[in-house]
Amino acid sequence: MDLGMIEFHLDAGSGVSPYQQIVRQVRQACRLGMLREGDQLPTVKEVVAHLAINPNTVLKAYRELERDGIVSPRPGVGTFVTATLADGSLAAHEPLRRELRGWLDRARRAGLDDESIEALFRTTFRSAAAEDVA
């Protein structure tokens, strides 16, 4: 089925609720420039039919995106992207990726395997996030 600009997928084992997965996928697509201002999101019915997912879940995800100012609904037509998260930050991606690659190389040389690298990243990410909140 052709869903237009973006096709959602659900990872049942991720532990992330389906509506959050949709929100993240839209944000991600906007961030990476795959969705641009004026693009139409698939209709609720299309998503429901494609994913066999609860319509309220899709509605909830779209409402959250709307609240965040990323999309806005046009009654009777559909939901459209109104902002793109890529604007300034897209340019910063490349240098950051280079740094991250360098860090990964150093981690490997220090003897960390994939699992340890992931665990280290996650715990650091979480403690940093916790400090930001506090």
Binding site: V48, A49, A52, N54, P55, V58
Partner: peptide, 12 residues
């Protein structure tokens, strides 16, 4: 999957 798709589509 197809059954649920049909059901949920009708719900929507």
């Amino acid at each position: 999957r197809e059954f649920l798709q049909g059901l949920l589509e009708a719900t929507a």
